[in-house]
Design a protein around this nucleic acid. Structure first.
Ligand SMILES: NC(=O)c1ccc[n+]([C@@H]2O[C@H](COP(=O)([O-])OP(=O)(O)OC[C@H]3O[C@@H](n4cnc5c(N)ncnc54)[C@H](O)[C@@H]3O)[C@@H](O)[C@H]2O)c1
Ligand SMILES: NC(=O)c1ccc[n+]([C@@H]2O[C@H](COP(=O)([O-])OP(=O)(O)OC[C@H]3O[C@@H](n4cnc5c(N)ncnc54)[C@H](O)[C@@H]3O)[C@@H](O)[C@H]2O)c1
Lengths: 244, 244
DNA sequence: GCGACTTTGTGAAGGCGCGCACAAGCGACC
DNA sequence: GGTCGCTTGTGCGCGCCTTCACAAAGTCGC
């Protein structure tokens, strides 16, 4: 169950620094817009219409406008949106106007790939520590970060005021990792292990399960195949009609 | 735009081998149920109620029953569901009753982690090839698979009848990778690069962007912080009330 | 300054998914 | 064989999300 902050109080907030609730679906798209807008900025595009941004993100233009309108009305009718200002606004709304400290638990294949990934620091996430229990992994530097023993977790979380923890341990150790993260003071968790972890109320967990993604794909792939088989049966035979 | 097979024809299909459309939200949960049910099987639990499964998956029990009912009615009232039969049914529905061949494009950190990951073969996915363009990476074995040059992609896809491709290249090369995958005959793509790739109609793409996940987390984290700040302002000061 | 054109912001409608609540069905026990 | 208790399967209302459509509001050219 995703923790959802109960916010009856936030209906009519102060006009500036808007704090109305943004729908989950919109929050999931804002980072994509942000990415595209930053690319536009690099190409020295100063202005963009909802139609253009929609084409880049492969979504409906009205959806783009409604998404952006949740942050306030920053567009100019007849012209479009100022890219730089939009980038600023989305950044602020997503909380990217300051750095976030992150710790990773589990220094295996995935943990190492994550800790060495440049895309995180680019976006304002600072990996403050990578932790493991296997002595063979400890003190080895991966991706510019020295692996520490898990026992040092509480200390690092407290010192660096870490609020986000990533679980990259085997499934069997994920619940333990979550418990330790929570006890250390982390309030949000990104879990890559294929298990459901239980956390106290108020702590939020996002699960990213790559096997699940593949299984969703194969469901659709299988439907495609059976649909094609049925078509063949109807048409007598013949080629599967190409990507129209 | 997610490719959605137009299926007006499938409303009243043959009674056995049900092929009605399953809602996307349900398809995304079935792999999680499957995982949990397999664990139950390992613990020699032969029967399970929707309540129990719901607790394990941290979802509503009615949702579980409705999800399962899309595959047909396989439960026994007053008793629950036969775990083994349920595993069989979900497997069949997701297309996991046979192996799926997968290729990975990009043998960097992520590509190597993925190709060595045991969880995929456990679930019936067979990595048929890992491809790169960097000569330094080619012919090196990663995770039991030898890295091949990208030019060999069409050949491998055709020979092994690969239908699923994974993109683990830098963002700048992702569109090229997608084009090559499609041209080789792959019909579904799992994209880890933080870009929107364009594909012909009929090809489906799922994007997994870890940075986006972190940004969704930090949005909620930031709301939590400002909410706490407002509370402090109201209460005069004092501790942020703990996870109730 | 005015008209034509462009693009935003949003009201309203439709669709989808969630969860309640309950009838229907099954087993167990007497 | 009947009753009782338990669990499934699902109809229904509700709320969220998407999309259409259009008035409002701005720019540009003259
Ligand atoms: N490798 C992938 O591509 C991939 C893909 C999808 C999902 N996953 C999931 O990600 C997780 C990690 O995968 P991986 O391939 O990196 O595994 P791995 O075995 O390479 O690494 C796991 C690491 O966790 C450490 N560890 C074990 N118990 C621990 C504990 N209690 N506390 C802290 N650290 C502990 C181990 O020492 C090891 O270094 C797994 O749950 C896996 O299912 C991985
Ligand atoms: N490493 C991570 O943890 C992580 C996390 C999130 C997202 N990603 C994304 O995943 C992708 C891969 O990340 P990475 O860390 O493995 O990068 P990487 O630089 O380690 O590896 C990229 C690999 O792709 C190869 N490559 C480059 N151009 C290619 C082409 N045209 N065709 C085939 N191969 C090509 C390179 O030779 C290299 O081996 C990136 O898009 C990245 O943004 C990675």
């Amino acid at each position: 169950m995703k923790a959802r902050t109960s916010d009856l109080s936030c209906k009519a907030m102060s006009p500036h620094r808007s704090r109305r609730r943004i729908p989950d679906a919109t929050v999931a798209r804002l980072p994509i817009y942000l990415q595209l807008l930053i690319e536009q900025l690099e190409n020295e595009v100063a202005n963009i219409s909802s139609d253009e941004l929609a084409a880049l993100a492969a979504v409906n233009a009205a959806k783009v406008r409604k998404d952006l309108s949740y942050m306030g009305s920053y567009g100019t009718r007849g012209v479009g949106y100022d890219v730089e200002y939009l980038v600023y606004q989305i950044r602020r709304e997503l909380g990217l106007d300051h750095e976030w400290s992150v710790v990773i638990v589990g220094a295996g294949h995935l943990g190492q790939a994550l800790s060495g990934y440049g895309g995180f620091s680019e976006r304002g996430y600072s990996i403050e520590g990578v932790f493991d229990i296997d002595d063979k992994k400890i003190d080895v530097a991966v991706g510019g970060v020295r692996v520490r023993h898990l026992d040092e977790l509480p200390q690092v979380v407290a010192q660096r005021s870490v609020s986000i923890g990533v679980i990259a341990t085997p499934a069997s150790a994920a619940q333990d990792a979550a418990d330790r993260l929570v006890k250390s003071g982390v309030t949000s968790i990104l879990n890559f292990a294929p298990v459901v972890v239980n956390v106290p109320f108020g702590i939020s967990v996002r699960r990213v399960d790559l096997s699940v993604e593949l299984q969703i794909i194969s469901y659709h792939e299988q439907r495609r195949l059976t649909a094609a088989a049925q078509l063949r049966a109807v048409n007598g035979d013949g080629s599967i009609n190409a990507t129209a």
